[in-house]
Design a binder for these strands. Structure first.
Lengths: 124, 124, 124, 124
DNA sequence: GTGGTCTAGACCACC
DNA sequence: GTGGTCTAGACCACG
């Protein structure tokens, strides 16, 4: 699989892997029943320790997105819809705090929306 | 002082203190030349380790918002305008990552702006 | 044969096969002297790796329930009574641990028996 | 804290730690707001690698039983009631499978309840 | 081959 | 001192 991991990001690698897998499911590149790359394979592809991949997969399993089958590997069990929904919730939650702080500091809603739009349009 | 610290937040305490001080300056409750509560005083008021307050003050000094005066404590040296501007920059930076991830996952700009507006209007 | 295997169960497949064979014997559908489906036949029917079936048969042989006959496959050598008894022992053993943990956590015997009865009566 | 870990049990150590902590909370020996032994302390007491304790604590945090505070340690955030309830659910779930298998194999309800009672009364 | 657990030990951030 | 992440590598069970 084709996850690109940024080793210099403050976001933990295992979390980048989790996000990457979720995004593949949302994009439809991974569907229910598909098998993920094995832990060792993924680990060697993204040049990371297998333990790190294992942790990511394990946590995705705990949240109900994928499932392990002994001796066979991990398969996707959640459809893109569900993953997308829970992802929106999470991200909205992340947006909440900085937005409320901006509000408290006196920015206007219009100014905020303008800032957001700029990020959307002109950032990588 | 009147900072409220949330011990349960994932945001480091020293960072909450920095933000709190900046907000007081933005709101005009602290003006250029005003002195901050001493490290020990602040620490005992918000029930926090003095080292933590010291770190916050030290970093605020490094960014040019406040200044240490031997034997007198820390005084504010930046005006509300400047602090507000740099705060906007920081917060915009924080918004960037979740927004771009939402974009990558297929949310529309309109939908995003709607979400933002809802947070703005209806969240505490 | 008529075993139904649950690939999503945490119970290892080889163990599900062992249990399935034992249950057939207990129910009388397999009697002393009957021959089991060949490893390959069983494997293809339940969509499982032949190695897995082989392991199940091997272990059933070790416990004295079935026996390999050169060129003829496996035959049943234990009667329903015996199998049932050893099965009860095994299952009682499995019940032991969760029950004792419930006890340690302060549930009353009556409450426990009630829970058990509910499972018995109302679960599929 | 005085968890006793059985290194020879098939139950993973990190899981034994999770169970142990939950039980301390249920018994009231750990209350809301109490701090757990630090990862390193617990690890050295039960002669186990700190990573193993860390995993247990992390998972307890994910299920909402305890909470980490940087530089300070873990504190209990769930009361005994809640922990007990979710524990009952889990254990009942564990009982379900062996009980239904016993039922399928022809044991009578009375016989089963007798077996349960014996385990309760006479096992360690 | 697959995943699962555990150890040993490094490095970082926070208090 | 605290927790958090990551690596390297061993050993086990399952298919």
């Amino acid at each position: 699989m084709w996850l690109d991991i940024d080793m210099r990001s403050p976001v933990p690698i295992y979390d980048q892997i989790k996000r990457g897998v979720r995004e593949e499911i949302i994009k439809g590149k991974l569907k229910e029943g598909d098998t993920l790359p094995s832990i060792r394979e993924m680990a060697s592809q993204i040049r990371v320790n297998p333990n790190t991949v294992a942790r990511a997969y394990r946590e995705l399993e705990m949240e109900g997105t994928i499932m392990a089958r002994q001796g066979l590997g991990y398969i996707v069990v959640s459809d893109g819809e569900k993953v997308r929904d829970s992802m929106f919730d999470t991200l909205s939650e992340e947006l909440k705090e900085p937005i409320l702080r901006l509000k408290k500091s006196g920015i206007s809603l219009d100014k905020l929306l303008e800032v957001i739009e700029n990020i959307w349009k002109y950032q990588s």
